[in-house]
Structure formats: structure tokens, C-alpha cells
Design a protein around this nucleic acid. Sequence first.
DNA 1: CATTCCGATTGACCTAGGTCAATCGGAATA
DNA 2: TATTCCGATTGACCTAGGTCAATCGGAATG
Lengths: 193, 193
Amino acid sequence: MNGQALILQNVSKYISISDEEKAGFLSLLQPRDYHRKEFLQREGNHCNSFTFITQGCVKSYLLDQKGDEHILTIAPADWWVVDYMSFVFETPGSLFIEAIENTSTLILTKEKRTELFRKIPLFEQYFRILTERAFAVSQQRVTDILSLSAAERFEKFQQRYAHIAASLTHQQIASFIGVTPAFFSRMLKAKRK
Amino acid sequence: MNGQALILQNVSKYISISDEEKAGFLSLLQPRDYHRKEFLQREGNHCNSFTFITQGCVKSYLLDQKGDEHILTIAPADWWVVDYMSFVFETPGSLFIEAIENTSTLILTKEKRTELFRKIPLFEQYFRILTERAFAVSQQRVTDILSLSAAERFEKFQQRYAHIAASLTHQQIASFIGVTPAFFSRMLKAKRK
DNA sequence: CATTCCGATTGACCTAGGTCAATCGGAATA
DNA sequence: TATTCCGATTGACCTAGGTCAATCGGAATG
């Protein structure tokens, strides 16, 4: 499936729009490809667009004082990525967004999104639903971190990300669930027994 | 300020609606009061409404296997509370929502909200913006937990919740930032020096 | 005034998970 | 084939924060 077909399919999961509106929507999107390890966004830059992944996979993460990486999101095809904090509050971002495979995207800038809302108000609903779902999942993640052990978080991770877990390095999974690679390795060893 | 005035003021921060629309909106809300320690929601129940706090304060939290409480949100007046996971995905909730002071609320059920969207589509925008902001903050919370020490999280908590920190118990603050009351007490002692 | 409650504090001890450095191993590059 | 990477693993040791039980203290209740 090509990128445009994929994003239209995604949209149609939540709202119904006419062919004309589909064309109008697509015309606001800017395609862009990134190769593995290329950055979509860097810490310090203001994030002013939503990026839809049509192929490949990206991660968003921050570096702490010690320079250690903490992955916030892993976004495979059919997902949007944004540094929400930067986008919503118009502040310099604190996240890096980086392709972990060669990746194709469609970019919707803040201006274009505003234009989209004006032209096709139904997209307010699309983004409302999208964000409500993402928020619900994010709240789960908070409660998981607060109440589960590393091993339990890994269990959940495996269930939720079964389809992409295999294409991630152990380092990435460890960072996502919030442990060091060394400890993650020991965890796996313990489970194998 | 009374509850209706407060919620209208909140709405008008994000969208502009006519007096007629305001009346229509208010007519969909159900007022309800709770006394301290009363539950708005219990684990296992499906959460099918948004609740706007007009006075007082509530907390949402989950109990882990050991029965320890982990606070997810603290919602003072002028905030909405929901168990998003339950509301959005229509699953039994895993959160308790409990008044920590005598509290007055306005309830918007899922059905009424749907009706609201149908009658005044601009409310899609209101909830989109609201959720985008809440999501951004939630993502920050995830990165904070992953990358900051307990003391640093407490620092941030004090800044963000300066206005209500004084009315919370140490237990509640400790639970929110993700440490035990015992450790929290030691942290305070260390800071005082 | 006495009592109960409940949050806060503290002491003694414990553990999940971190740190750092060394080693292994497989894939990609020269 | 030899070399370089780079992720995974492992060993030895460390620490932030947890546990559990005792105590303190102030506010509310009888």
C-alpha cells in the first residue's frame, strides 16, 4: 500500500469524508523520506508539525544529564509522531525524533493543520479521537511505570508491541521499558530458565 | 464563582460560543456533590462520563497487587477527570477516583457528550485542544519518571502544583511522584539542611 | 480531659536495578 | 581473509529507594 492510501485508511477508521475532501487533505501533506539514523527532530528545535509514518519506524527520546537515552515512543508505519509538548505549548522541544529504519513520512505542518480544520472541520474529530486514544495509552504507561516491576513492564511491552518487538534492538526495548541494557539482559536470562 | 460560570469560563479559553450555545451546553451537565473520601469511580466499573471539578479536589489512583496506592492525577477545581482508558476503550476501569475534599462537580456522560458534538460541533475542537494539552503533559510525566531522580521530580512537582501542594498530605505527594512516604520524609529532611 | 486516629518521622535493614569495565560474537566493511 | 563495529552478555560491586515496625504529635471525637 502506498503512503497516501495508508493515511486515508487511517483517517477512515475514525471519520468518513468524501473523495473531494480526501484529495484536499492529501494536498496539505508533504512527503519526506529519511534514512536510518536520520533525525526528524532535534532537542532544542521547535516542533511545528505532525509526521505520519507510512513506512519504516522512528523513535522519540530524550537524553538525560548523563547522556543516557530514554525512549518515549516507538512509532511504526500507520502512526503519527510529534513532540507534543513542543508543538502544543510552542516551546523548544526536548525530544529527538530519529528514524531507526529507512522511513517514509507525510508531514502536516501546524499551519496546514489549522487550514485543514478550517476547510474540513470533521478533522477536529479525527484528531480529537486520535489524541484521546493516545492519551489513554500514555496514562496507562504512567501507571505501569509507577506500579509494575521491570519484568512485568516487559511482559506488557511484548504483548502490545508484538509485531515490531523483533525488529528492535535489546537496547531500544530496555530504554523503552526504563531499564539499562545490562539489567535487561539479565532479565532475559532469568526468564529463559 | 459558581460552577456553571467556572465551566463556561474554561470553555471560553479555547472556543467562542454564543449565549444560546452556552445554555445548550449547560443543560447537558448534571451537577453532583461528593464529600471527602467519597468515590466518583471505582476500579472495575466502566467509566462513562467526564467530570468537571467546580470546587474541591479529587485524585485518581490505582492499587497495585500489594494494595499500595499510586496516584495518577490530582484534579483541583477547573479540571476534568476521567478514567480515559476505560472511557475511550470501553473497558472496565482500573482506577479509583476519590474526592480528597468536599467536592462539587458537573458530569457530562458519554451520551450527552456525543449529543453535544452533534449539536455544537465546535466542542470537538474544545475537547481536541484539552486532550492535546493533557497528553503533552502526560508525556512529560513519562519522561520525567524515566529520566529524573525522586528529588528532581519533587522539584518539578512543587513548581507545577504550587497552588495546591499545601493542601495535600505528604503521602499523596509521595505517591504522585512515585516514592514511599518514608522515603519522601527523608528527602524533605535532606533538603531542609 | 482522655482517647482515638492518622499522618509524619525515624531506625535498622534489604533489594531491585544501576554502574563500569571486560568479553563475546556476528555482520558489515576493507 | 582480516578488521572494525556494535550490540549482547557477564562479573563484581554499588546505591537509590523500599520495607517494616516503632514512635511522635496534633487534631478530632467521646
